[in-house]
Write a protein that binds this DNA or RNA. Structure first.
Lengths: 339, 339
DNA sequence: CGTTGGCACTCTCATGTCGAGAGTGCCAAT
DNA sequence: ATTGGCACTCTCGACATGAGAGTGCCAACG
């Protein structure tokens, strides 16, 4: 028993029909709606074979068939091919990115919104995170007598800030010249480079440097804040109305920090885009969900990801195409501006 | 027919019991569990009166009673009194705020997390927004030959950034001196003050000033980004399992921009804290929900808010107490650092 | 041997019935 | 005004029933 061409074709149709209607697919539907040149009886035969192969399931005797996780996997790996968004769609998306303010955060936002809108799924987009945080420039701004604001611009044009308690009262010109002196020393440095650079005779300087080091360390320990968008769409999917525990599952997984691990681990590649179907997910809460995710970054250790989460019954082709295009576009936008 | 003391007491008990159990409350429960010195029959009489008064409802003949929106309103306005968190709870919260990095965003996060955890409701906390955006300091950092990063520190120590396309190639020292010159001119200015300040003979300077003005205008037009936390808790409330459309309602309202309008409009005051019960909400999607919200800010036109959203069956006393304490605490933290 | 129509079989789903349980509304007595 | 008694109403779960959908299998056909 093996997966012949016709069987594969029927599997594809079942996936397509089920994704669209969310109801088990019967042999007559395949025969009539898709004009397969074979009688319902024959199609039943083939479906039986596909079930023995583990690619289809029956919710119960005498219901139609539903794709199993393996069925979706087969569809994604062997049937749907290399999908691409069509040109007009790409152009529309591209246009919106060039309309937006040239800010990484804006692009991340935009990507998440577009993704969730077009697919009706939950979109998760994380900005890239530098593997090694490197200082480009720092500035000190006086807030009041004993409090200054330390503003740090990182290599990738990200801006961090932190309050510094000053040892002695300094006015803005004094702070500026201190900042200028420090800039010459710390430019290009990362947290570990900063150890022992402080001049022990200058308490203000060491206060600033210590704050800077703490800031960098905290920043690199911080969870990436991913942008999550599209609850409305995904919770309107019929699978969630039937079984409320699935809502709690998906919400509890996504609503807590550390989403990126779920999305990054154990992914199989499909041309840069990974698809995780049902049980292939690490998190047991996602056993009825699928994840489509792709990394992006400037190649120098700065990488984020863009992905979608939804029920296993999702439009994989469009999902993969959209995720691929948006990850590429985000990468391109970044290179154009920060490269 | 009027609301006597005993009736008010019974109403309070019904609210309390219903909030706890989520099941309609019968006369025997009130009699036995709360040891009310009156027989179930008498209590039924009183409940009937309360129903005629519009403060209680029956889901159907011969179920127990459930508070109506008006019943909750009566409870909140006349019965629960001025509630406060107890001292140890206050101390614990306070401690966590002083542990956190001294950053407004961190406090907003922390407030949202604490609020949603302790109440099991959806917490919404928005950082204050200056009525008038005023520049404190600006800086220019070279990214590459024709691209610089404009970093602007606002009066309230917020930091904005924006890329600037340069007219001609400038290195970092040149940019720094330009920034220094500009600082003297624009310090304390807001978007409207910037009109016509540019020197038409210096194209780089006018590019920077124009970018600055655009940045400020966009920033003041931008929706406040509120921190929303606690989907897990609120979606686990029993009301949402019974009726899935309510999940879609609350998600659709909160998941789209402009939450603050829902929360700010038409609020009735309870010592700085507003409570909006059911139909009192502007948004029809929130007709089965209640909102508890309080503004905070430094009094000089900078104001944000902290609030919770949940089913009308919520612990109003704790909600009001927590919201009040956290809004006050946020205000205090801000004044301490930025005042 | 692959394909097809026929047909009995199975399972779900909507509907209806029934009894138990909970709580009320009302009345007559105190 | 308060109370006990009691009939009444409504929900909820269990169970039965019938329609409908779709299958599995078989015998017949090219």
């Amino acid at each position: 028993m093996t997966v012949t061409d016709r069987r594969a074709g029927i599997l594809g149709l079942v996936v397509r029909e089920y994704v669209e209607t969310a109801a088990p697919v019967g042999s007559r539907t395949i025969h009539e709606k898709y004009r397969v040149p074979a009688s319902p009886a024959t199609i039943r035969h083939e479906m039986q074979a596909l079930e023995e192969e583990g690619l289809l399931r029956q919710p119960h005797t005498s219901a139609g068939r539903v794709p199993s996780d393996e069925g979706y996997r087969f569809f994604v790996s062997s049937l749907m091919g290399q999908v691409e968004l069509d040109q007009t769609e790409k152009a529309t998306i591209r246009h919106q990115f060039f309309q937006a303010p040239p800010e990484l955060d804006e692009w991340v936002d935009l990507a998440a919104v577009l993704l969730s809108r077009s697919l009706g799924l939950l979109a998760i987009v994380a900005p890239p995170r530098a593997a090694r945080l490197q200082v480009r420039h720092l500035e000190l701004i006086a807030l009041n007598d004993l409090l200054a604001l330390l503003v740090v611009v990182m290599r990738e044009a990200r801006v961090l800030k932190q309050l510094v308690a000053l040892e002695s009262a300094l006015d803005q010109p004094e702070l500026s010249s201190l900042a200028q002196r420090l800039n010459e020393r710390v430019s290009g440095m990362s947290a570990s480079d900063l150890r022992g650079t402080a001049d022990p005779d200058d308490p203000t300087e060491s206060a600033v440097l210590q704050t800077l080091r703490r800031l960098l360390e905290e920043e690199s320990a911080r969870e990436v804040e991913a942008r999550i968008e599209g609850w409305t769409g995904v919770l309107a999917q019929p699978e969630f109305q039937a079984d409320y525990t699935r809502v709690l599952d998906i919400v509890s997984v996504v609503d807590r920090p550390g989403v990126e691990r779920l999305v990054t681990a154990g992914a199989r590649d499909v041309g840069g885009v990974s698809v995780l179907i049902g049980d292939e997910n690490q998190a047991t809460e996602l056993r009825d969900c699928s994840v489509v995710v792709a990394p992006y970054g400037d190649g120098s250790g700065v990488s984020g990801f863009v992905g979608v989460i939804g029920p296993t019954r999702m439009r994989y082709a469009q999902g993969v195409a959209s995720v691929r295009y948006l990850s590429g576009l985000l990468q391109e936008m970044m290179e154009r501006v920060y490269g």
